[in-house]
């Protein structure tokens, strides 16, 4: 029965005029509940927070793209070695090298062949080498 005054206070205050504590997860909740005097009206997990969340919840409506990961060169080199062990790929690259004399163009064509064959780390290694030469 001791909560009747609190309930009346809640009914009178309404949610819009009370400040709600923003928090997600039990870490913040436990820290709040174990504080010296947690209030039932304001703060993380309090009644007002819940009423406020019931009435207005904003969620981001997009998905963040993953950050670019730096190229792991040893892994890319291993990927290139695997590609070059394939006789068909080796033959294509040699054919291209005979037809193209410019070293930059060779790197670009080689990256294209590796891309077609599905060796993406090796492709990225060749592109990185090309960019280094163009600096």
């Amino acid at each position: 029965m001791q909560f009747a005054p609190h309930l009346i206070a809640v009914a009178l205050l309404g949610s819009s005029i009370a400040s709600a504590g923003e928090c997600t997860g039990s870490v913040e909740l436990q820290n709040y509940l174990h504080a010296q005097a947690p209030s039932i009206l304001v703060g993380c997990g309090s009644l007002m927070t819940i009423v406020d969340k019931l009435m207005h919840r904003a969620r981001k409506s997009g998905r963040r793209l993953e950050d670019d990961q730096p190229l792991n060169t040893s892994e890319a080199q291993a990927n290139l070695n695997t590609a070059l062990r394939d006789a068909a790929i080796r033959r294509r690259i040699e054919q291209m090298r005979r037809a193209v004399s410019d070293e930059n163009m060779r790197l670009a064509y080689e990256a294209a062949i590796l891309d077609e064959e599905g060796y993406y780390n090796a492709r990225d290694l060749r592109i990185m080498q090309l960019l280094d030469r163009l600096k």
């Binding site: 997600t24 997860g25 039990s26 909740l29 997990g45 819940i50 969340k53 019931l54 919840r57 981001k60």
Partner: peptide, 13 residues
């Protein structure tokens, strides 16, 4: 916030 739900104690994982 993908795996959070509103509970009597607020938004929890």
């Amino acid at each position: 916030h993908d795996d959070t739900f509103l509970t009597p104690l607020g938004e929890l994982y």
